[in-house]
Design a protein around this nucleic acid. Structure first.
Ligand SMILES: [Mn+2]
Ligand SMILES: [Mn+2]
Ligand SMILES: [Zn+2]
Ligand SMILES: [Zn+2]
Lengths: 158, 158
DNA sequence: CGGATAAATGAAAAGGTTTTTCAATAAGGG
DNA sequence: CCCTTATTGAAAAACCTTTTCATTTATCCG
């Protein structure tokens, strides 16, 4: 965690941006979150680390971090998006439909598929945006437990 | 085009929704668009077909069409999204970075990749959201032409 | 075909979110 | 430490989306 924080802090410094108290609070908040957060959520949580944190600064910092590639907007099933820490390089996020907890994956191999797309459309493919949704291990376990429960009820009903 | 219109109209009817003049204008507008449109753009263009078209109705119709699977929100590179007609079934959109013109592709074969993701994350994968970006044939041609032009200028400069 | 009926509509208002402006503050270099 | 300039938060403005409600319109029936 300290590593990830340092890597992000370094990105600010390397590009000549100051590492202010509000920015540190925002980075730490994002690093401590299991799910993508909205700007308002980031402010609320961030104020526990830096009491004066303003919403405007959250917007500005997210914009900057997106530019630096240290944060990414993640689309949620319910439509709008939240922001999650992004590792350097090309990665994707896998989001749990139920609890929204998010995991990042590196190394996507869509090459063959994108070649087909290029052939079929005539477009010169330059990039892609992919998000995967599913049920995290914890939510699967919870489902399984409830199912067992349901079954016993069903048995009674039958 | 008439086919696609009829298919969409049928979706309204089949699900018990009325095929009103505003809705027809919105569908025709989307069918006639080369790129994903924002609600405001849909209203503007749609008013050429049905002068009284209100923005609220655009929002409501998009919501309904999304439910019926006949329209989909497409993420644009500049952040926010527009809406484009979607064919039945699971498809994806390929968007031109330059002119935003959009093409729909069916049949994605991410199966192997998603299996890997499931293994690595422990998530039970239930879906994915994929958008591909690139340069459409027209914009590629334009680029090529400009390059030729640039070269002649460079030659002069040298 | 009208007429009845419930769905659908547009205008206005409300509710949110994001951006801009600007005086005050704080980070980092010297 | 002080200076300089980037950064900040509050307030206001600008946007975008949703809700409310009286009126209109599509569709079903007789
Ligand atoms: Mn990828
Ligand atoms: Mn797919
Ligand atoms: Zn979960
Ligand atoms: Zn193009």
């Amino acid at each position: 965690m300290a590593d990830r924080y340092e890597a992000i802090a370094e990105q600010f410094r390397v590009h000549g941006y100051k590492l202010t108290q509000p920015r540190r609070a925002i980075v730490q908040t994002l690093l401590g979150a299991a799910k993508p957060l909205s700007p308002a959520e980031i402010q609320q949580r961030g104020q526990k680390l830096y009491h004066e944190l303003g919403l405007v600064t959250v917007y500005r910092t997210l914009e900057l971090m997106e530019l630096l590639g240290t944060v990414r907007a993640v689309h949620l099933a319910d439509g709008c998006h939240g922001f999650a820490i992004a590792s350097p390089g090309h990665t994707h996020h896998v989001v749990c439909e139920r609890c929204h907890c998010v995991v990042e994956i590196a190394g996507c191999d869509l090459g063959d598929f994108l070649d087909t797309v290029a052939e079929r459309t005539g477009y010169a493919i330059t990039g892609h945006w992919l998000e995967v949704s599913g049920l995290c291990a914890a939510c699967q376990a919870q489902d399984a437990a409830e199912h067992t429960h349901d079954d016993s009820i069903d048995a009674t009903a039958r």
